[in-house]
């Protein structure tokens, strides 16, 4: 039951962070970063199976693997940016969090350019 371990770790970290936030706010922030990383690496191994499934479905749909890789990168960017922005907000740095989210949006749109081009080419192909 990994979920029990994950929830237990999260609750304990939250209690500790609340306890030490008044005296050592910087330590509370480091604690939340550490716990977040630990939780992320705990479930990282499980993502591989999901990605394999997505790849198989994409190949069945005759979809170019480059597009799927792009989408997965975009999803990863979104998660990482969210993780960083929340930590910044917890630290009281809302401005930095907004900048992180802005950078993530730009990166997502840049990565989407090949897909937009592919969409355009597909539409042009349909025309006689």
């Amino acid at each position: 039951m990994e979920i029990v371990q994950i929830v237990g770790l999260g609750v304990v970290a939250a209690v500790l962070a609340v306890t030490i936030r008044h005296n050592k706010p910087e330590m509370a922030m480091l604690l939340s970063i550490a716990v977040g990383l630990i939780l992320f690496f705990m479930v990282l191994g499980k993502i591989g199976a999901v990605v394999e499934l997505l790849k198989e479905m994409a190949s069945r749909a005759s979809l170019n693997m480059v597009y799927l890789a792009t989408v997965l990168k975009i999803v990863a960017i979104a998660y990482i940016a969210d993780f960083g922005a929340q930590i910044c907000r917890d630290a009281g740095e809302g401005a930095v969090a907004s900048k992180i989210e802005f950078a993530a949006k730009i990166l997502i749109l840049v990565l989407a350019v090949p897909i937009v081009m592919a969409l355009l080419q597909s539409l042009l192909k349909l025309l006689p």
Binding site: V50, S62, A78, D82, I108
Partner: peptide, 27 residues
Amino acid sequence: FLPQNEMRRYVRLVVGLLIVVAVLQAI
């Protein structure tokens, strides 16, 4: 698979584009 935050709209856009590309390629 998408995150539940502000990024979701952007990621949904890209995923939607990808699905449109796949459908157009098939058709």
